[in-house]
């Protein structure tokens, strides 16, 4: 009975995930996207390397059906089910991801994503690449950002200006702005995406406990949130004294049991040195006395 229940639960669960899997719909306009370049053997080679690093741990080696047993099943990408998708569909799925598949938007540049597709297509003898379509000439907004810190408001003010059709400059409203701070391994986003108001301004509150360098300086940059690249944008950068001055001592500053010899705890140095000197002092004294025995002899 319990076994049956388990079976039912497994069935329902797999049904559920199947439904979930089917809900990963690719918008029609994205389906129609084609690669900007002709797939070349070089691209395929590069795609192979990228595939091995980023995809193989789940999808396995193409043609080997050795993909990881996950839910939903990742599947072998050289097989019919994956290959019947358009290039645009595959590109969209790689770009956006869907748990547990990571989104590769920020991991692989566009060209690399196309290289992976070129590699996957090399397993499909029936595949004929549609004619490449280079990116259309730019027709969208041209936005330039500037940034300063407003002491009275305690906020970072990002101002977006744009080049209007008549060539005049104007304030750009409705532009989504992201604020980043430079860290050792990359940029960290601060706060949420903000949209510029009618004055072309977006105000960012800066966390009060954010560590800066030892004088409190932080390198901040503002960027336009434009995932579909419909604008031409110029980001703004500034070094502002808005962080908490951080000058932590080196982790090896103090004397400790684990420090190098130069920084050994004083009591250990003392105890060790003294014990050795005292005991060996006696030893040398005894050796010296022993040698005296010879001189004290009768003849």
């Amino acid at each position: 009975m319990r076994f049956n229940k388990t079976l039912i639960i497994i069935f329902l669960f797999s049904l559920g995930t199947r439904v979930a899997a089917q809900t990963w719909v690719v918008p029609d306009d994205q389906k129609a996207v084609v690669a900007p370049l002709k797939f070349t053997p070089d691209m395929q080679k590069q795609g192979e390397q990228l595939y091995m690093k980023n995809c193989q741990s789940c999808h396995g080696l193409p043609g080997k059906d050795n993909w990881a047993k996950l839910t939903p099943p990742p599947g072998d990408l050289s097989k019919e089910k994956a290959q019947k998708q358009t290039d645009g569909e595959i590109f969209y799925r790689i770009t956006t991801g869907k748990v547990p598949m990571p989104e590769f938007r920020n991991i692989l540049p566009e060209d690399d994503r196309w290289s992976v597709i070129a590699y996957l297509r090399s397993f499909n003898p029936k595949y004929i690449q549609p004619n490449p379509v280079a990116k259309a000439a730019f027709t969208g907004r041209i936005v330039t950002l500037s940034m300063q810190y407003s002491e009275p408001m305690k906020k970072i003010v990002v101002t977006a200006s744009e080049q209007l059709k008549d060539g005049q400059a104007g304030l750009a409203s409705g532009v989504e702005i992201m604020l980043y701070v430079k860290r050792y391994f990359g940029k960290m986003q601060v706060g949420d995406v903000k949209t510029t108001n009618a004055k072309g301004q977006a105000l960012f509150e800066f966390p009060a406990d954010f560590p800066g360098n030892k004088d409190g300086y932080v390198e901040v940059s503002a960027m336009v949130n434009d995932p579909k690249s419909i604008m031409k944008t110029t980001p703004a950068n500034a070094t502002l004294a808005i962080g908490v001055p951080t000058d932590k001592p080196s982790l090896t500053a103090t004397r400790a049991m684990w420090s190098t010899r130069d920084k050994a705890p004083v009591w250990i140095l003392l105890t060790y040195t003294l014990s050795v000197i005292i005991v060996w002092g006696f030893i040398f004294y005894i050796i010296y006395s022993i040698l005296k025995i010879k001189r004290l002899s009768n003849g």
């Binding site: 990571p102 989104e103 920020n106 991991i107 701070v181 860290r183 050792y184 391994f185 990359g186 940029k187 960290m188 986003q189 954010f210 560590p211 951080t246 932590k248």
Partner: peptide
């Protein structure tokens, strides 16, 4: 994630996202 405690920031090795 890997980073610098002094900067209070770590960066994810896969997504390259940097967080506090």
């Amino acid at each position: 994630y890997f980073g610098d405690e002094n900067e209070d920031a770590v960066t994810n090795g896969t997504t390259k996202e940097t967080v506090r």
